[in-house]
Computed example of a mutant assay.
Amino acid sequence: MLAIPYVVVTLAAGFQRFDWRLDDAARVMGASPLRRITSVVLPLLMASVTAAFLFAFLVSFDDLTIAIFVSGGINSTLPKQMWDDIQLAITPTLAAVSTTLVILIALVVAISSWLKRRAR
């Protein structure tokens, strides 16, 4: 629920820039609705969809207080589990998860910058 405003604003900005004449041209040329979505709409909105996904992921991953109050029972979110590990006992698992997250974020940044350079 907390990430919905980020997603809506990001996608609204993407749709505001979107040229609907391209979709109309594909429809006039006989493209099916599925083909129009996969060939015209998604490639043009991919940057907005990716940014909305990243915003939603970061907001949901970062909000520990909500995770603490919402989680319960057997299942636990990763931020809550990391918080519990910090509070109860320092384990090598916490260091491994932290290292994995740092490497994953570095890979995402490197791949996105590579794709940006390649697109130019």
Rank of each mutant, 00 (worst) to 15 (best):
L64H: 01
L115K: 10
L2V: 08
L94M: 14
G30S: 11
F57V: 00
P33G: 13
S32E: 10
G30N: 04
A12N: 05
L104Q: 05
R35I: 08
A12R: 09
L54D: 00
F15Q: 15
A47L: 13
M29E: 09
A3Y: 04
V49M: 14
D84W: 05
P5T: 11
R36K: 13
I37Y: 08
Y6N: 04
D19C: 05
K80Y: 13
A26V: 12
P5G: 10
M1C: 05
A89Q: 13
G72Y: 00
A106Q: 04
D63E: 11
A51Y: 02
V97F: 03
T100R: 09
D85M: 13
L54I: 10
S60E: 11
R118M: 10
P92M: 07
G72E: 03
I66K: 01
I66D: 05
R21F: 11
R118G: 11
V70M: 14
F57D: 00
A31K: 13
P79G: 03
V8Q: 05
F55D: 00
A47H: 07
W20I: 14
R117V: 08
I4C: 06
V41A: 15
F53Q: 02
A89G: 00
G30H: 05
A31M: 14
F57P: 00
A106T: 04
G73Y: 09
F18M: 04
V102I: 12
T65I: 14
Y6W: 13
A110P: 00
A47G: 10
V8M: 08
R118C: 11
L22Y: 01
R117N: 14
L34T: 12
L107H: 03
R36H: 10
G14D: 02
D85Q: 08
A56M: 12
A89I: 05
M1F: 14
T65L: 06
D62P: 00
D62S: 14
W20Q: 10
L54N: 03
V40T: 13
T91R: 14
Q81R: 13
K116L: 08
S60M: 06
I66L: 06
V97L: 07
F57S: 01
V70E: 14
Y6R: 00
S113N: 07
P92L: 07
R27S: 07
I66T: 05
N75L: 07
F61T: 02
A106Y: 02
R117P: 06
A89T: 10
A3K: 12
